[in-house]
């Protein structure tokens, strides 16, 4: 016992510098990530300014009930899920397809240029992106209205009609992120053993067959990991972009849970209620992540852990 203990200490002592390496990150995660997790208990309390968290009276699930029974609960949920499922079920497969297509381009220069150009929009800030969307959709001179004007449609004032909002958001998200998300699949594709392709070619497999039976299975583990990660973010869709694109007219479709948390919490200073809504969101995300991860592990043994 004593021997193992002293061996343990020797092992720690020999690498004490490594623990110093860890220290800044440890402090960071404890303070800025676990700190708020401790603070989230105000969701169960009546927290007011001037009180400490510990002094606040415990009210249990009061605020959760108020949110779930509130008048806008289902609208918020619907809007959030419309935006996130659109991104997940349309945007996600598109980035995989884009990687597969790019991988088949026979000219290296063209392949590289197209790849770089396709991920450039990822670096455009949300503020600029939101204003570009508004400029392009402008009903007087916007490019989109001019384009559909050519075939005799419009002009539409897209930003003022709530129903358009999910489509606008999802299309913009696809435009901005598909190229970037594809990078990870492109690099996974470049990791596939070329001998597999050679062997399949000798056996008479066509290009399409090789894509279907070598490339796709080859990047499937990466796809699954990325899908699990994405499913854990379903409830926290691009807060900033939605917030910046909101106006009074599209609000019925553009108010999502996270923008609601911001408005109620920081603008109306209802800390406890808003923290409860935020926690509700985080818990749903976490449950989704666990579920998808569990299903994936059962089905094919791939999971985050």
């Amino acid at each position: 016992m004593r021997n193992t203990l002293s061996r343990t200490f020797r092992r720690i002592g020999r690498n004490y510098e490594l623990y110093l390496f860890l220290l800044p990150a440890l402090l960071y995660f404890l303070i800025f990530c676990y700190g708020p997790m401790y603070g989230v208990q105000i969701a169960f309390k009546d927290f007011r300014a001037g009180m400490t968290i510990e002094q606040s009276p415990f009210v249990g699930l009061k605020y959760f009930r108020r949110f779930v029974n509130g008048p806008n609960f289902w609208v918020l949920l619907r809007n959030t899920l419309l935006l996130s499922s659109g991104t997940l079920f349309i945007g996600f497969p598109l980035s995989v397809c884009w990687a597969l297509v790019l991988n088949e381009v026979p000219f290296p220069r063209m392949k590289k240029t197209a790849q770089v150009v396709s991920y450039l929009p990822h670096f455009i800030s949300t503020v600029v992106m939101a204003s570009m969307i508004i400029i392009f959709l402008n009903s007087n001179y916007g490019l989109i209205n001019r384009a559909i004007g050519l075939i005799g449609l419009g002009p539409y004032d897209f930003m003022t009609v709530g129903r358009w909002f999910p489509a606008i958001y999802v299309i913009a998200e696809i435009w901005q992120e598909t190229g970037w998300s594809a990078i990870i699949y492109i690099s996974a594709l470049s990791g596939i053993d070329p001998e597999l392709h050679e062997a399949a070619t000798i056996d008479g497999a066509s290009r399409l067959q090789r894509i279907l039976h070598i490339n796709i299975p080859g990047i499937l583990p990466t796809i699954i990991i990325m899908f699990i990660m994405a499913s854990g973010r379903v409830m926290s869709v691009g807060f900033e972009k939605v917030f910046l694109l909101q106006n009074n007219l599209n609000l019925p479709f553009s108010e999502i849970v996270s923008t609601y948390v911001y408005k109620v919490g920081l603008l109306q200073v209802q800390y406890s209620f808003s923290a409860a809504v935020g926690l509700f969101n985080a818990v749903i995300n976490f449950i989704l992540l666990l579920t998808v991860n569990g299903i994936s592990r059962k089905l094919n043994g791939n999971g985050l852990w």
């Binding site: 440890l26 800025f32 700190g35 105000i42 911001y262 920081l266 800390y271 923290a275 935020g278 969101n281």
Partner: peptide, 19 residues
């Protein structure tokens, strides 16, 4: 584990702001 957990779960906007 301690660090990775923060990727999947966080305290949210209000507790972070208060901190």
């Amino acid at each position: 584990f301690l660090f990775t957990f923060t990727m999947f779960f966080n305290g949210g906007l209000i507790p972070t702001y208060l901190l």
